[in-house]
Design a protein around this nucleic acid. Sequence first.
RNA 1: GGGGCUGUGGGGUAGCUUGGUAUCCUACGGGCUUUGGGAGCCUGAGACUCCGAUUCAAAUUCGGACAGCCCCA
Length: 463
Amino acid sequence: MENKKENFSEWYNEIIELAGLTDKRYEIKGMNIWMPYGLKIMHLIDDIIRKYSDEKKFQEVSFPVLISRKQLEVEFEHVKGFENEIYWVTKGGKDTLDVDLALRPTSESAMYTMFPLWIRSHTDLPFKIYQIVSVYRYETKHTRAFIRVREIHFYEAHTAHKDYNDAEKQMNEYLDIWKKIASELCLEYSLDVRPEWDKFPGAKYSIAFDTPMPGYRSLQVGTIHEYGENFARNYNIKYLDENGDLKYVSQTTFGLSERLLAAVIGIHGDDKGLILPYRIAPVQIIIVPIPGEIYDKILEYSRTIMDDLKNMGYRVDIDERDYTPGYKYNDWEMKGVPLRIEIGSREYNENMITLSLRTQKKKIKISRQNLRDVENYLKTVNDDIKSHSLKFFNDNIHMAKSIDDMKNEYMVRAYWCGSKECSDKIEALTEKAALGNIYNDKTSGKCIVCGRDGKLSMFSRTY
RNA sequence: GGGGCUGUGGGGUAGCUUGGUAUCCUACGGGCUUUGGGAGCCUGAGACUCCGAUUCAAAUUCGGACAGCCCCA
């Protein structure tokens, strides 16, 4: 396998196919196949997203993939922001359509033509929905599996509120939800308030979740957006308040995608392959029986161990393929399984099992009576992933006191006045783009370029 | 947005300069022997991205499309 540190790009391309996450050989650029193992991981990530969304009383919906040209003809910066990356359906069979249909690049214009029908009074608010669907963007840039694709596996939450203040509270709730999701995936992140010119089209402001990735670039793994009344005024979304007055709603959105998977692959993986947090591991525990004289009994014993673990609620499998144990160890390590159990004649005779953690070299023998201890070992693996992830995060973000300090390959924090001129200068000298001001940072300093008052900000090359 | 490189069995490749017979490794099917950190032998099947041009003849030369990768803005 490729060396991850020296050649991340090749390592990444190799592992995603080797581990059975995707097949990139489909003939349309930027559209890859979700292979069974990869799809299972993504669905487990989706389950986490659903769980924390549902907890906060979001309701899941599913909108049509097509949006009429009329819906998109609203004169609005949001629409302009996407016009160059929309796929258009212009024919039905041999007939040219009277009204062109767009494949949704995101669902604002689809959803918000329905919102006025659903939202009538203040008793309908707050209104909170989400969907996990594919959205389509005609990317002209270089595509990259899970990182920049044309068919995006997309989670989008949309809310409507009685006023701006309530929408702001929603933004905080998003941050709570995100914190929990990130923790389950063992991801660290920086909250960056995107510069004016880089915020979501139509938003008042956008906060992105940026994380350093190998290859010395940052990856935006999620975003939340405050719309205020911007969309409501264009899509005419109004409600009657307690006094009988007609008012515009304030809105927010929250978006996530398979970039979460990209981050998990890129940040946690090592030269042996993937390393998966147990919450998203399709197989949490793999049992490898070691052949020998009494293989029948070893198999029987292994299967009862598997049944016991299944009854405890774990996703566990037994590898009875005709390969050598060594091959199986490497194979499952490549697939990122957190915990492996080896069972041979010794374990069988002593009523023990041998445990091997994906993140550690040593092997641990425990007696069958203590089978429940696997929970602690799964958590140990997660702790290892988290501490590695935190170290990677800290190692890859530096504080710069001068522009010269910014001339390295890492992500960099620096004070910045917020002007385009200064960020252009920084980009010209360091190749790093302004990701925005660090969210909620209370400190202040002089702009690293012009010396005016500045806020602590993040700069990086990006994927 | 600009520039560069590359498309050969499932994966990785040799062959291309000098046009004619496609190499090796790996993975895969079958068989036997094996199995506590990527087993061995025998055997089988499997490829020149697509379209066009030049030519008696194209994996090889030329043009285009599509796809992949890298660098710069």
